[in-house]
Computed example of a mutant assay.
Amino acid sequence: MSLESETRRIQLTGGSTLIVSLPKEWARQLNLQPGDEVILLPQRDMSLLLVPKKTIRSAFSEAKIEVTDELAKGDRLTRITLGYYLAGYDIFRLFFNQNTIGMKKDIKDIARRKLTGVEIVDEGRNTLTLQNLINVPGDISINDIVLKIVRVTESMLDDIKVALSTIDKNILTDIVERDNEVDRFYWLLNRMLKKLTTSTYYASASGIKDPRTILDYALINKSLERLSDHIVQIANELLQVGQQYIMGIPKEQRDKVIEYIDKVMELIGVLSRSLSSQPSSVNEINNLIELAREKAREVRGLQGSLREYETSPSIIASFDSILYSIARMLEYISDIGEALLNINIEVG
């Protein structure tokens, strides 16, 4: 639909009611009839968004994927499926040949681990149909998803702190597996944010007060996902070195690591409150940004400090890797703080 803008005069009817007629060609293309309902959404710039109710719930968009031998190589099918999910498709129909039928198991695993709201609705010998069951907007808000990521991240940090003192393999393995939950919410929020950019109505109905904040939420989402990845990197380092971490590293150095993990948890807590019902002031967010950067510099200053002690090169490398991940977590917290600051300014 491509229509030119029009200017209409406001009319007075019944002595007190203001009315304006709708463009005839626009109404014709949408097949609007007397009695049809429209939604009126006032915008921040004092314009008025008019949305015919009948157009809001359009037919499910459907993706058909032929799983060829070429597409079955490496991670290609995963990338394609994720691409359709992020593009906003609701139904995924996959068709397999004799050589690729074994990929059905992989697709089911992708849906389980990465695609929140996507369920298997039909399966044949050579076919598989997935459908997204989460409506955007409506079923879940942007802030809800961000807070879910924050809370999973907080639980991972709490457990990594315990594991730094115990090297408990069960706890470390659970941390690595829990990262899948972060990934699921990360992809869901990516999908939602992409959809909001395609429709002013979706953005308004989702609670977004200013479209510029979509970019800020995208940065927050990516920073939280990367922060979670660094928690997993620490867990993997501890799984690899095992008890050598405790035996080969002086307690004073290990205590410093726990101290900085505590600081990361403290700052994550501030972020959590800023995203919930107790938003932080501009001064509080600025203080968070500056403190996160200061602590990141301190952590980077500790890298290489184990060379003063008699310990193996592999332990030194693992210790420096853990410190690098902590520094990056603090830097990501600073990035999130900057995005929250932008949101505060943009929405007033």
Rank of each mutant, 00 (worst) to 15 (best):
M247Q: 06
R307M: 15
V38T: 03
G88C: 07
Y245Q: 01
I231C: 14
F92D: 02
A218W: 09
I171D: 09
E181D: 04
L12D: 03
E66A: 13
V176P: 01
I261G: 01
L22D: 05
I142V: 15
T127R: 09
L133T: 11
E25Q: 09
D158Y: 00
I107R: 10
S334H: 13
L188P: 03
N135I: 02
I65K: 08
G348E: 14
D139P: 03
G14A: 00
L164N: 01
V264Q: 02
V232Q: 15
D320V: 00
E252F: 08
T153Q: 02
I285V: 14
E62N: 11
K105L: 10
P279C: 09
G74R: 12
R273E: 09
S314R: 13
I80Q: 14
G248K: 04
E294F: 06
T173R: 12
P250N: 06
P250S: 07
V152L: 01
E331F: 06
D320W: 02
N283E: 08
N31G: 09
I316V: 10
L238C: 06
S272I: 06
L157W: 03
L323I: 00
K64I: 09
R28N: 05
V264M: 03
K195C: 04
L306W: 07
I316L: 04
V162Q: 12
E259Q: 15
F60L: 08
I322T: 02
G207A: 10
E181C: 00
V136F: 10
L86N: 05
V182C: 06
I234P: 12
D122A: 15
E123V: 07
P137R: 00
T116W: 11
G88A: 08
